[in-house]
């Protein structure tokens, strides 16, 4: 195991990686068929963040998460979780990580409680004397206390999802990895999960949340990374990411044709006229001048708004394609 890398000089990102909860360097996974699932991923998840891991289905999110959890060995590159290398340090890292990977998996013939007891027993650092209390607390936390004695195969999809979450919450964790946690849930269930995530984050737990739903990420995450086709496209604070993309100017007016002409004169590009709405990429100049020009041309303006860019806009700007395109 001691394989000194004498050739490797002190790396500049070393300090940054130290307080990162997850840090990967050139993480690559090529499956046996030759398919490149993850390609040179450099991911940094700061401690205390709620980190959105975004990407269409098939973009390599799950493969990345499996590598982080030590389930898949990277083809090359390295991954560090809680400052320790994975998968080598699985034994010390994983007890402090709760995970929900690709949906819950349960023993249908066991009750919800027995499922949790089994997963808790699988953790060699879990004290068997307090196992029942831990399980009861976890069930309580996800609102399954009443259904704990029911066989898991009788659970609805939402209940299974919650039980999976409960398994991730058996111990106090430093990192929670939640892969598509709201998949298959009704809007009420989704809201509950998001509330739970915010709660956990406020306790200081870092949450790594993968999703293909943009608004979900936008609602709960402080940081985000975007993946497409196995590559990391961008990462950073959600606010910075949206700021990177420019907003759009929206003018509401009954004189749409005239408004469009004026806006074009004023240097706005990409004009779209849709009924009484004219949208355009705002010109470089002061928007007050633009408004004045409209008024001067006797365009009756009902509304004049600069719409802030959404994460989706950021994504489209980055990839040049729609979000739902599968990699």
């Amino acid at each position: 195991m001691a394989e000194p890398s004498a050739t490797e000089p002190e790396r500049p990102h070393q300090e940054r990686a130290d307080d990162a909860v997850i840090a990967t360097r050139g993480l690559t996974k090529r499956y046996r068929g030759g398919q490149l699932a993850v390609d040179g991923l450099d991911l940094t998840v700061p401690a205390g963040s709620v980190f959105g891991f975004l990407g269409p289905n098939g973009s390599g999110k799950t493969t990345t998460i499996r590598m982080l959890m030590g389930l898949i060995e990277p083809t090359s590159g390295s991954a560090r979780v809680l400052g320790r290398p994975m998968p080598r340090a699985s034994r010390t890292v994983l007890p402090r990580v709760g995970a929900l990977i690709e949906g819950p998996a349960l023993y249908g013939f066991l009750s919800g409680r027995d499922n949790l007891l089994r997963y808790d027993a699988a953790d060699p650092t879990a004290d068997p004397r307090t196992r029942r209390e831990r399980v009861a607390a976890a069930l309580d936390r996800v609102g399954l206390a009443a259904a704990g004695g029911k066989k898991a195969k009788a659970y609805s999809l939402g209940m299974k999802q919650r039980l999976g979450l409960a398994a991730a919450l058996l111990q106090p964790r430093r990192l929670l990895v939640l892969d598509e946690p709201t998949n298959g849930l009704d809007p009420q269930g989704m809201r509950e999960i998001r509330t739970l995530v915010r709660e956990l984050a406020s306790d200081g737990t870092t949450v790594f949340l993968s999703s293909h739903l943009l608004d979900e990420i936008e609602q709960v995450c402080t940081h985000a990374a975007v993946m497409a086709q196995g590559r990391l496209i961008t990462q950073g604070a959600v606010a910075d990411l949206s700021a990177g993309a420019r907003g759009r100017l929206v003018v509401t007016t009954p004189d749409a044709g005239e408004a469009a002409r004026v806006l074009k004169e004023q240097g706005a590009a990409d004009l779209v006229v849709d009924g009484d709405r004219v949208t355009a990429e705002p010109p470089e100049r002061d928007l007050a001048e633009v408004n004045a020009a409209l008024v001067a041309a006797r365009v009756r303006v009902r509304g004049f708004v600069l719409e802030r860019a959404s994460l989706e806009d950021a994504f489209v700007a980055l990839t040049g394609e729609g979000f739902d395109v599968a990699g």
Binding site: R66, M69, G70, L94, P95, I101, E102, Y119, D120
Partner: peptide, 12 residues
């Protein structure tokens, strides 16, 4: 059943 991955991240 998929339970293997949860046993392994427990970590068993």
């Amino acid at each position: 059943a998929g339970t293997l991955r949860y046993l392994l991240v427990a970590p068993a």
